[in-house]
Design a protein around this nucleic acid. Structure first.
Length: 930
RNA sequence: GGGCGAUUAGCUCAGCGGUAGAGCAUCCCCUUGACAUGGGGAAGGUCACAGGUUCGAUCCCUGUAUCGCCCA
């Protein structure tokens, strides 16, 4: 005997183990050797991560697809793995060192630190994998990969070397987004623009050759800036060439206060006459726009002067480019006192110095956007350094084309626009990071300044030696001596210390995980993957880059479909994040309601193109759904509804059974279509409605008299049908609720013919052709009759326990036959004492019209005549309103002429029905009051 | 500044060129022999606003307002 309710906590672990023991999720199972492949690569969660709602949604959707396709007989590979998450992981371990008061990263050195990170990974990394298993994710866990695995690292090196050889990776000195806390460059995408309330400082820069007089505007130009601390690096002042008030100054020079540098006034469109004072100071080394301005005026503007160190402190004393052309003196000494001062302290001090000299006429409040590092949260400095770049523009072209020509489609489609927009305006991708945890850049430097990019150090040394010979640095003999001496060659080159952006290796994920660059069978079988399922927040970070790399190296798209799902947000609609502390833990929900309930909730809410604001009440509701199904199965068990090996859904004779089989067929077809179209919410809702509102509410209720009556062929057939439909339901719901359904599958399999396989490997239902219109007409009438009687009883306040008679007035023969055939069932469901037939409705009856037939409920002593009169009048009024609306349409010649024939016909029928109902209700009224 | 999306029942959200839907909450009735994590019934909406297209608009178009997100 089954328990009264499903206990997820007791079952989930056992079911998961059964899947694992059976290797149910293994790709390339021998029994599917000839099956079509279906593959998805998981968006690899950070190895530091723990399961959040976004993961829960993302992986639920992928799992629905994988389980669905697996049941449809495909050879499914859901490729799992984790991402080494460079900065995040390095920060975690560094924090751990700090907490334990152990030596810091720099003190212990690179090698020792990396050992610590690997140790951390072995110990506490990848917890999320087990959490994904708790969710029920049917990945092929035997193929789990990590972005820093040997194989994947090899892929990274090969890609880097090849792109470098092709000129698509290069080293360049440019302004980068520098994170002064993490001490690394980051890419544009890792920069968050934050609106900040700051100030706009107005500074007077005295003109060259005149005596500064604060009262005389002819002696200076006023610039406005949000960043006074950079002024020591100014190399120009810009005004708009057509600036009416200031344009005449273009060509002259100013003397930069505090240090006395002579810098030009240049004309440039960048200086907006409407903004600030119309004049801006130009600091090419510390501002992206200024850098461009500087480049446009190479004839007059000197090289960028970098005045900040890596930690964003002023760097003045040991800074030749700053000191160049500066006259020594008291002023300079005062400025040099700022050496080593933090940028924000320097800002204050510089403003004070300017004020002291009467050079700061105005400070106004000013709101502007300031770049922040998404990891560190500190203000990013544009900083001039050497970094490695990917020529993203070139790689973007095939990626754009593949989506334009439909090889890869986004679902929903509107994300394609976002994708296009970004790729069309893509900037060089800065891929080097000044971190230790990650793929070290495969570039080596020689003492004479040569750069050698190679997959291994041996190759780099060989290349360097060859180069040395060519350059006549060594002769052949010397080169050979170095090559043959491991000690010499080991220290011969210095490897680039930087590592690659984590997303560089992620970009290779769809093929590196399959074994590329080795000649792996999986690459041939599973690439391109079938679909990528991910959130829109990483379209740029990840999707676009996989497209670029996939097309470049595999010459083929990485995935045919990209399903972009919503973000699960907090109740205010804000993105969940650790730092905001608004994270809902899906594991808590799993503990409380079970993984199936959480999964079903997420699926039911995953409408395309809209974010999910999750309400716990929904999870509770779907937990109740699980209980409902569980109890339906329990009811079946109690009624001996055993599976029958010879059951043939085409051969049933009972109308009720044909009906439920037909309804099941429709549900299967609708759910199938919805999943195929990635309409997860529709598919979940269709299944929900079918199971609860059709199978439980009506089929089982209608079947009760048969099941609980005397043995008969009808009873046998109904028992077998019930068992059959429950089997179909477990299949239908398996992608959404794998644990509950697998458990039911096992329970139902315990008797009768043994199951051929776990449900996870069973075949998806195919009931095409079993819809039955006649059965629908008959059962539909019963359903309508019972519903309407219940409604009237409730309105008339007939006690639920009271059994009342029902009279059918002049029913057509077929209706009378139905009523007689279903007598017991109808009486039971509508709580009737008996059903009879008459030519007129008895006196004092409530009368209703069910599919055109008058149904009378004699309610002598119960019925309130005036209430019933009011009820009928209300009904008539509503019906008349309908007629009026339909008449308006039908009276419109344009409508009749232009609307589709079936719509017109539908309206005519509706009108006739309404008129008939009105007619019958009128006579009911007469009867009542006459 | 550019782009995207949203505005539908008290709340959270579906939907859609042809009679406005669900879950939760609310109200009434029911411990009936699968399930009170249940059963039955009811109430609740000018589909943000203004124009336009159309025989017909909640749906398509334009504009406005409010909110959210992304990019600069």
């Amino acid at each position: 005997m089954m328990d009264k309710s499903f206990d997820p906590a007791a079952v989930e672990g056992r079911i998961a183990q059964a899947w694992e023991d059976a290797q149910a999720f293994r790709a390339g199972r021998p029994d599917r050797a000839g099956a079509p492949p279906y593959s998805i690569v998981i968006p690899p969660p950070n190895v530091t991560g723990s399961l959040h709602m976004g993961h829960a949604l993302n992986n639920t959707l992928q799992d629905i697809l994988c389980r669905f396709e697996r049941m449809r007989g495909k050879d499914v590979l859901w490729q799992p793995g984790t991402d080494h998450a460079g900065i995040a992981t390095q920060m975690v371990v560094e924090r751990q060192l700090m907490d334990r008061k152990e030596p810091g990263r720099r003190e212990m050195g690179r090698e020792a630190f990396l050992e610590r990170v690997w140790a951390w990974k072995a110990e506490s990394g990848g917890a999320i994998v087990n959490q994904l298993k708790r969710l029920g994710a049917s990945c092929d866990w035997s193929r789990e990969r990590f972005t820093m695995d040997e194989g994947l690292s090899k892929a990274v090196a090969k890609v880097f070397v090849q792109l470098h050889r092709e000129g698509l990776i290069y080293k360049d000195k440019r302004l980068v987004n520098w994170d002064p806390k993490l001490l690394t460059a980051i890419s544009d995408l890792e920069v968050q623009q934050v609106e900040v309330k700051g100030h706009l400082w107005h500074f007077n820069y005295p003109l060259e050759g005149v005596v500064y007089d604060a009262e005389n505007p002819d002696t200076f130009i006023t610039v406005a800036t949000t960043r006074p601390e950079t002024m020591l690096g100014d190399t120009a002042v810009a005004v708009h060439p057509e600036n009416e008030k200031l344009g005449f100054l273009i060509g002259r020079h100013v003397i930069l206060p505090l240090i006395g540098r002579r810098i030009p006034i240049v004309g440039d469109d960048y200086a907006d006459p409407e903004k600030g004072t119309g004049a801006v100071k130009i600091t090419p080394a510390h501002d992206f726009n200024d850098f461009e301005v500087g480049r446009r005026h190479l004839d007059r503007v000197v090289e960028p002067i970098n005045i900040l160190d890596a930690e964003a402190r002023l760097l003045l004393k040991e800074n030749p480019s700053f000191l160049a052309h500066l006259a020594e003196g008291a002023d300079l000494d005062e400025a040099l006192a700022l050496d080593g001062v933090d940028r924000f302290v320097a800002r204050k001090r510089i403003v004070e110095m300017m004020e002291a000299r009467g050079l700061c006429p105005k400070i106004e409040p000013y709101t502007h956007t300031v770049p922040h590092g998404d990891r560190s949260g500190v203000v990013i400095e544009p900083w001039l350094t050497d970094q490695w770049y990917v020529d993203a523009k070139t790689l973007a072209q095939p990626a754009l084309a593949a989506v334009r020509n439909g090889e890869t489609s986004f679902i929903p489609k509107n994300w394609e626009k976002t994708y296009f927009e970004w790729l069309e305006n893509i900037q060089p991708w800065c891929i080097s990071r000044q971190l230790w945890w990650g793929h070290q850049i495969p570039a080596w430097y020689s003492a004479w300044g040569g750069v050698y990019v190679a997959e291994t150090e041996e190759e780099a040394i060989a290349a360097a030696l060859a180069d040395a010979v060519t350059r006549e640095i060594y002769d052949d003999v010397e080169a050979g001596r170095i090559a043959d001496n491991p000690e010499l060659s080991a220290n011969f080159l210095t490897r680039d210390e930087d590592v690659l952006d984590t997303w560089f290796s992620s970009a290779l994920w769809p093929f590196s995980t399959l074994g590329w660059p080795e000649d792996a069978a999986e690459v041939k079988r599973f690439y391109p993957t079938s679909v990528l399922v991910t959130g829109f927040d990483i379209i740029f970070f990840w999707v676009a880059r996989m497209m670029m790399m996939g097309l470049h190296f595999m010459k083929e798209i990485p995935f045919k479909d990209v399903y972009i799902h919503a973000l699960v947000r907090d109740e205010k609609g804000a993105k969940m994040s650790k730092s905001k502390g608004n994270v809902i833990d899906p594991l808590n929900l799993i503990d409380q309601y079970g993984a199936d309930a959480l999964r079903f909730t997420l699926a039911a809410m995953a409408a395309q193109g809209r974010d999910i604001k999750l309400a716990t009440s929904r999870v509770e509701g779907y937990r109740n759904f699980a209980t409902k199904l569980w109890n339906a199965a329990r009811f079946a068990e109690m009624n001996g509804c055993l599976r029958s090996a010879c059951f043939d859904p085409h051969g049933v004779e009972q109308t009720l059974n044909s009906w439920i089989i037909g309804e099941t067929a429709r549900a299967v077809s609708d759910v199938t279509g919805a999943i195929e179209a990635y309409r997860f919410n529709d598919s979940a809702n269709i299944a929900y409605r079918f199971v609860w509102n059709i199978f439980c509410d009506w089929y089982l209720e209608l079947a009760k008299p048969v099941l609980q009556g005397a043995d008969s062929p009808a009873k046998d057939e109904t028992r077998a049908t019930t068992a059959f439909v429950i089997d179909q339901i477990t299949k239908l719901l398996h992608p959404f609720m794998p644990f509950l359904t697998e458990e039911l599958w096992a329970i139902k399999g315990a008797e009768g013919e043994p199951r051929a396989s776990l449900l996870a490997l069973a075949s998806w239902p195919d009931l095409a052709g079993l819809e039955d219109a006649d059965a629908e007409a008959e059962i539909g009438w019963i359903v309508d009759l019972v519903s309407e009687v219940r409604s009237v009883r409730s309105e008339m306040n007939v006690p639920a326990s009271a059994q009342i008679p029902l009279v059918l007035v002049e029913p057509p023969a077929i209706v009378e036959a139905r009523a007689r055939g279903w007598d017991e069932t109808i009486r039971r469901l509508a709580r009737l004492s008996d059903i009879s037939f008459a030519s007129v409705a008895p006196r004092n009856s409530a009368q209703l019209i069910v599919r055109g037939v008058v149904v009378a409920l004699p309610l002598e002593g119960v019925i309130d005549i005036s209430a019933e009169t009011a009820r009928l009048n209300k009904e008539i009024a509503r019906e008349e309103g309908e007629v009026k609306k339909v008449d308006a349409k039908l009276g419109n010649a344009d409508f009749v002429r232009r609307a589709p024939e079936e719509i017109v016909e539908e309206n005519r029928e509706r009108k006739q029905e309404s008129l008939a109902r009105i007619e019958k209700m009128r006579s009911a009224l007469e009867r009542l009051n006459g």
